[in-house]
Amino acid sequence: MLINKNNIQLTHSSDYEELSLKDESEVIFSFIIEASSPQKAKQALLAFDFDSFNIDEKKTGVYRADNPKISYFRYLETEKYLNIFDIRITPPRGCKKFKYKIIPWGNELVKEIRQLKITQLSSNDRPKRKVILKVDDLRFDESFSKFSRVIEICNEFKIPASIGVIGNTLENASKYQIEFIKNQLGENNIEIWHHSWSHKDLTLIPRYEIENEVTKTLDAFKKIFDQNLTIFGAPFNKVNDNVIEVAKSHNLDIIFETDFPRNITPELNKNGDGQPNLLAFIERFERTKDQEISQVQIHPGRWDDRGYNEFRSCIAYMIGAEINFTTVNNINQTE
């Protein structure tokens, strides 16, 4: 990504400050920007001078700038009058010090920048990124084996999975399917969440139909597994006030769409393919490296053998990145 130097007003920008690194550190810049207007995004830049280092933009978390006065930058996306930022930067390997400054995006937009705090995290005390593996569209029909295959891969890698059940096939579940899920629940390998009754867009139907979509799945799951569902994820990741209110009224207290960042998927949806793709996933995953908790969303019902092989590679990549795989319930119990 390049910035056109003619679009940057370097007004009210102070000289660079120098930061010395204590070791191979991740650096967190924490500050507040008070804006004159909440209407325009990209109200400021956090600019860096890494001297002569050859920067890997994906690993570092910065972009090269086409501007003679700065070398690299991070956009500060803003939507409110008071905008709180915690920007994580991973300096290039071997870097002992670098320079930084905050550049307002025009006088009329930035009223004040304050409370700059800089935290260095060494590799030993850096918190691990948490990932919820969000598995969508479990049905108790001929597609069940695709999901059991995913669960077996997760068990092989010793990571948990969070699986969304579509309720209208629960009554057709075979004895084998029921016992398989019960065993996985009993060993805490998986958690099950509510993914509606018929997987229709709940934002397009009246409230009484939303009630049916919610209550019928709750009742059917309770009858078979003797457990109450407490987590909800909407079809197509789409909610509105009615959907949220109905879900909350039935003790579905955690909603993926409102309680967690937007999902990341390893699936490459060109031409309706929908198969996981390692290279596409790495790009998306690295682009969201600032997230403390990420949900990685998959749809095994559409995969073929190639998809499972790519899925294995995606899991191995995250394990190599020292990701902490977790579930919604685990996060909820620790907060």
Score class of each variant (00 low, 15 high):
102 I>Q: 06
121 L>T: 04
141 D>E: 00
75 Y>I: 11
113 I>N: 09
86 D>M: 01
61 G>A: 02
137 D>E: 07
99 K>W: 02
125 D>N: 15
137 D>P: 06
65 A>K: 02
128 K>S: 04
70 I>Y: 13
136 D>L: 03
138 L>C: 08
56 D>C: 05
132 I>G: 10
80 K>P: 01
114 R>W: 08
90 T>K: 14
125 D>K: 12
86 D>K: 13
71 S>K: 15
77 E>L: 11
96 K>N: 12
112 E>L: 06
79 E>H: 10
94 G>S: 02
71 S>V: 01
98 F>T: 02
126 R>Q: 09
84 I>P: 00
69 K>M: 14
130 K>Y: 00
60 T>H: 09
108 E>S: 10
61 G>V: 01
64 R>C: 09
88 R>P: 04
124 N>L: 15
123 S>W: 01
102 I>N: 04
117 K>M: 12
92 P>E: 04
135 V>S: 04
78 T>R: 02
82 L>K: 14
91 P>Y: 03
80 K>Q: 12
82 L>S: 13
104 P>S: 06
107 N>T: 11
115 Q>A: 15
71 S>D: 14
62 V>C: 11
142 E>K: 07
139 R>S: 07
113 I>A: 11
74 R>K: 15
138 L>E: 06
143 S>W: 00
107 N>F: 07
124 N>W: 08
101 K>R: 15
57 E>I: 08
82 L>T: 11
97 K>D: 07
107 N>C: 04
112 E>Y: 01
107 N>S: 13
103 I>R: 02
102 I>Y: 05
120 Q>H: 06
